[in-house]
Amino acid sequence: MKSRILIIGACGQIGTELTIALRNRFGADKVVASDIREGNEELMSEGHFELLDATDFAAVEDVIFRYKIDTVYLMAAMLSAIAERFPAKAWHLNMTTLFHILNLAKDKKVKKVFWPSSIAVFGETTPSENTPQLTVMEPSTVYGISKQTGERWCEYYHKKYGVDVRSIRYPGLISYTTEPGGGTTDYAVDIYHRALKHGNYRCFLQEGTVLPMMYMEDAIRATINIMDAPKKDVKIRSSYNLGGVSFAPEDVAQSIQKVIPAFEIEYEPDFRQAIADSWPGSIDDSEARKDWGWEHKFDLDAITKIMLDNLKLQYS
């Protein structure tokens, strides 16, 4: 029997592409997309969609009951830069939604849960190069604190109640299908838009700020792979490190200049610089590779080609 899936936060950067991928795999009738707002035309027209406030327990429970949901992907969250402006709202959204889903799983109303963590769980005291799976975690942002706390609760619910919850720590994600969503790594999306529209980019991070990044297709594949893995192979129930490629803004600029030689970049760091400085430059994801066969496919130049080719089509 195929899973019946609910995606909460389906209109976000990850949720949009995850919904499409899961519908392609399981069939549109098996995947319910939900968000507090409506999404793009493809998301709305090609399968079930529910307007849903994920902080409302009764509303979430009702959708799960009506559609006979057994698997939930909880993608709703307030990201790093926006969360710094609205810390109480961010904490409420990020934590309340997680408790709702974990408690529904504890009560056997859901069989399997995916919840995303982030490199934001790390902090200035974390080893910044090849950051290990188990290490010092002293996040300095509201988003990072909520993700670190969420990891601990996921592991607790698994050990205490047997909840089958699975998680990966996403690095910065790059995609052409959705607009930047307020994250510190979103410069690596916006820069491609600006390159095509204006031929230049003013970066809110300074030169030399190396961060771990990943093309969205890799991230979606990792998400589906960990959910496909046999329960016995998912040995870490807090969250798995996930790595891709690490680069700085000037590396992206040089990659773009191979295609658009006249492209220029300048630097005007803002409050997001301090956030980026607290995050790792590269990630050791050997545990994910060993336990459930993770492997990334896309390097920076491949990402640049895909982004520019597809954004050109959008703008034309």
Rank of each mutant, 00 (worst) to 15 (best):
T97S: 04
A77T: 13
N130D: 14
D107P: 10
E129A: 15
L104R: 01
W115N: 08
L98Y: 05
K112D: 10
L104W: 01
A76V: 11
K111W: 03
E129H: 14
T135D: 02
L98P: 02
L134Y: 15
W115M: 08
I119T: 05
K68T: 13
Q133H: 01
Y67L: 01
K68V: 06
P127L: 09
K112H: 14
S80A: 13
K112A: 03
L102R: 01
D70N: 13
L74V: 04
M75P: 07
P127C: 04
V136I: 15
T97D: 02
D107V: 05
L79P: 11
M78W: 05
V113Q: 00
M78G: 07
K111I: 02
E124Y: 15
L102F: 08
P87D: 05
R85L: 12
S117Q: 06
T126C: 08
V121A: 02
F65R: 14
K106R: 13
E124S: 15
I64S: 00
L93F: 09
F114L: 07
I69Y: 07
A81T: 10
K111V: 03
T125W: 14
W91M: 12
I64H: 03
D70K: 06
T131W: 03
I101L: 04
L93Q: 02
A76S: 15
T135C: 15
L104S: 07
V136P: 09
P116E: 09
R66Y: 09
A120G: 12
A83I: 12
N94A: 05
F65W: 11
T126E: 09
N94V: 10
M137Y: 10
F65D: 10
E124F: 15
V72Q: 01
D107Q: 14
I64R: 04
L104G: 04
S118L: 07
M78N: 08
F86W: 12
G123K: 03
L74R: 07
T131H: 04
A77C: 10
Y67G: 02
H100S: 08
F99T: 11
I82F: 11
R85K: 15
E129N: 15
K112F: 10
T71N: 05
A81H: 02
H100T: 15
T96G: 00
N103T: 12
S128P: 15
I119Y: 11
Q133A: 11
H100W: 10
F122T: 06
V121W: 00
E129P: 04
A88H: 13
T126G: 03
K89T: 11
T125H: 15
V72T: 07
L134Q: 12
E129V: 15
A105N: 02
